[in-house]
């Protein structure tokens, strides 16, 4: 039984439909990538899973319970955590407060001191910068705070929306290395990326999203070898 099971959802912004009849699942312990170009509907998909958008049709089940239409805070309480695109840090709050807010849910709050130590062990830079305002950090550090803030919520499934966006290549490598570490520690990861090569390298499976529909799915290896993906996304 999959951890997250999405069946046949439609999603619209007002009159504009952005996701059509989309189905996807993520099993416990997997790393699954969703790849696709700008405007393919990747972020809208994550927003729908985390409750910011409501699907007009279809079902979303997490741990075998329906969550479509639930409030975002209830979805967070279940351990389904969304690290949004563009980091969205609380700019005028300190790094420490950003991380603390990550552990707002009842479930995560009890363990927040231990989780905070784990986050600091993964990103020692964040410990050094604890009292700095989030807006004063570099792009790479901000992404560390965003991921750390997601980890503070003790995710059962961590959804990362373009963690490599706008970062220098060397930082991208570091971010992906940390995503791998998070996955190896037993957290299930759903990764949305435009950096297809890096994300497929650390994924078990992937879905290709085009114009709001799943265009292709398969194991990471199958997708990397696929001629369409090679030309359209990998530029080979």
């Amino acid at each position: 039984m999959p951890l997250l099971e999405i069946s046949n959802i439609d999603v619209s912004y007002g009159d504009v439909q952005v996701i059509y009849d989309l189905s996807l699942n993520v099993n416990e312990g997997e790393v699954v990538s969703i790849i696709g170009g700008n405007g393919a509907g990747k972020s809208s998909l994550l927003k729908t899973i985390s409750g910011l958008l409501k699907p007009s049709a279809g079902r979303i089940r997490f741990q075998d319970e329906d969550v479509q239409g639930a409030a975002p805070e209830d979805i967070v309480e279940r351990g389904l955590i969304h690290v949004p695109e563009g980091r969205r840090l609380f700019s005028l709050m300190s790094v420490r407060d950003n991380l603390e807010v990550g552990a707002h849910s009842r479930r995560a709050r009890a363990h927040r001191e231990r989780t905070l130590r784990e986050v600091h062990a993964m990103f020692p830079r964040l410990l050094e910068r604890s009292d700095q305002l989030a807006m004063t950090l570099s792009g790479g550090e901000q992404q560390m705070v965003a991921i750390g803030r997601g980890l503070m919520a003790m995710p059962r499934l961590l959804m990362l929306d373009e963690p490599s966006l706008g970062l220098a290549p060397i930082l991208i490598k570091e971010i992906f290395r940390n995503v791998r570490k998070i996955a190896e520690s037993g957290t299930t990861v759903l990764l949305v990326e435009q950096d297809v090569r890096h994300s497929l390298e650390l994924s078990n499976r992937g879905y290709v999203l085009e114009h709001g529909r799943i265009a292709m799915e398969g194991s990471a290896k199958e997708l990397m070898d696929n001629p369409h993906i090679k030309t359209a996304y990998l530029g080979i």
Partner: peptide, 23 residues
Amino acid sequence: TRTGRAIRAVSLDREAASLMGIS
């Protein structure tokens, strides 16, 4: 306080705050 931090978070970015589990 936890509620105080949540108030600041909501005032800075409502959508991001709701992704932290803040109503």
